[in-house]
Amino acid sequence: MPKIDIAALDPEKTVVVATGNAHKVTEIEAILAPVMPGVTFYALGELGDFPDPVENGDTFAENAVIKAQAASEQTGLPAVADDSGLVVDALSGEPGIMSARWAGVHGDDARNNAKLMREMEGVADDERTARFHSSVVLLYPDGSCVTGEGDCEGTIGHEPRGEHGFGYDPLFWPADTPGRTMAELEPAEKNAISHRAHALADLARQLA
């Protein structure tokens, strides 16, 4: 049984976030609430157990729309979803939309980072530029949507450093925090410069 009765929610004052991550809901709510007054944000998992859609888009934005569309169709509510990943210039944009499963197993951070180090072996420091990219979509039940885009620029290190974060954070050196990898930042510091924060800010500007 769902924890919250969907039928009791006002679609004009409710947005479902296509995630099971409570921290992500908090981050999204903090940035979007000021431009969406009176709206309550719920994680999709709070409303029931729904299957994950097949993310077969060719871009981050397309995959974000797929996730938002599934959440909206499952609940009848407006939905927010994001898709993000690492884009490395020396690798022609890889791993890109395949970031989470680049080494073959979804969410295997150790294998993904090992592959990144192998692929970047011998690449000069001035050619190791990269960025985390995020696309965030707010989609309404009528199919209309607004998309925000954001980047966190940086470079790829030679070896992992740091215990915070996840994914490629130990190998990513943000331009905004010289001398520290993303995995060496406290959560509040990371959220302030993250690609998703920039994408949400872009979305908020459009909604305002």
Rank of each mutant, 00 (worst) to 15 (best):
P2W: 00
D5W: 02
A8K: 14
A8V: 00
L9M: 09
K13S: 11
T14V: 02
V15D: 14
V16K: 07
H23E: 05
K24G: 09
E27V: 05
E27I: 03
L32E: 10
A33K: 12
P34C: 10
M36V: 01
G38M: 05
V39R: 03
F41H: 04
F41S: 02
E46R: 11
L47Q: 04
G48D: 07
D49G: 04
D52P: 07
D52L: 06
V54K: 15
V54S: 13
E55A: 11
D58P: 00
F60V: 07
N63H: 02
Q69D: 11
A70L: 01
A71W: 10
S72V: 15
T75R: 06
G76T: 15
P78F: 15
A79N: 00
D82Q: 09
D83G: 09
S84G: 05
V88D: 11
V88M: 10
D89T: 05
A90T: 08
L91Q: 08
G93V: 01
E94R: 13
P95I: 03
G96I: 11
I97C: 01
M98R: 13
A100K: 14
H106S: 08
H106Y: 15
G107D: 09
G107A: 14
D108M: 06
D109M: 10
R111M: 09
E119T: 11
V123H: 00
R128L: 08
T129G: 13
T129V: 15
A130R: 02
A130G: 01
R131V: 00
H133C: 03
S135Y: 00
S135Q: 04
V137R: 05
Y140D: 08
D142P: 08
D142W: 00
G143P: 03
S144D: 14
S144I: 01
S144C: 05
V146D: 15
E149H: 13
D151H: 04
C152T: 02
C152M: 15
T155L: 13
T155G: 10
I156A: 08
I156P: 06
H158N: 11
P160N: 08
P160D: 07
P160W: 03
G162D: 11
G162A: 05
E163F: 06
E163S: 08
H164Q: 15
D169V: 03
D169E: 05
F172P: 03
F172C: 02
D176L: 01
R180F: 05
M182P: 00
M182F: 05
A183Q: 10
E186I: 06
E186K: 04
A188K: 04
A192K: 02
I193F: 10
R196G: 06
A197H: 12
L200D: 00
A201N: 02
R205Q: 15
Q206F: 00
